[in-house]
Computed example of a mutant assay.
Amino acid sequence: MDNSNICDNFQSKVSNVLIRHKSILDIITKLEESNSKVNRAVVKSATSCGCISINASRQDYSKDSLIEIKDSLKSHIEGELCENCKEKIEEEIGKHMFYIASLCNNFNLSLEEIVLKEIDTIKTLGIYNLL
């Protein structure tokens, strides 16, 4: 497979296999459901498996520059995903991407163009994209 347009290839594959949930109503509700499953897989990694822990605390925004703020912010994740949890989260993100591609297909949008535009926005705004 040509990786230079992997988003287009993925979007095309999704278009070829999507039959059951073709309606925009099905797609947006499945997208929301898949988002919940991604979140659930992350939470289960902490609460059921325990390979990670989530220790949330107040973020410190009192630094002098945006770079210092960026460098001081925490993910609140401690530990690393075990292979089982990593596999489950990747699976759920993959399903979520499937419905993102389906949404793009229904509106005749290019996932690749959307990603490239977002990359340009990030490049243009740089660290100010954090705001």
Rank of each mutant, 00 (worst) to 15 (best):
E118N: 14
K88E: 12
L131K: 02
T29R: 09
R40P: 11
S65T: 15
V42E: 10
K123L: 02
S57L: 08
E78N: 14
K88A: 13
K44Y: 06
N55V: 08
Q11T: 11
I89V: 01
E78K: 13
H21D: 15
L103E: 03
L73P: 04
L18H: 11
G94Y: 01
F107S: 05
S15W: 03
K13L: 14
E83M: 07
N105E: 06
K88P: 05
A56Q: 15
T47W: 06
I122N: 07
C7S: 02
D120R: 12
S75L: 13
E113A: 11
I24L: 15
E68W: 03
S45H: 14
I27Q: 10
R58Y: 07
I54C: 09
Q59Y: 03
I19D: 10
N16V: 05
H21P: 08
K88R: 14
I77W: 09
I52W: 06
N9D: 07
L73E: 03
K13I: 13
C7F: 10
D2M: 12
G50L: 00
E113S: 12
R40C: 09
G126Y: 02
E113R: 02
E78R: 08
S23M: 04
A101Y: 01
A56R: 13
R40K: 15
E33C: 07
N16Q: 15
I93F: 07
E68H: 06
Y99G: 01
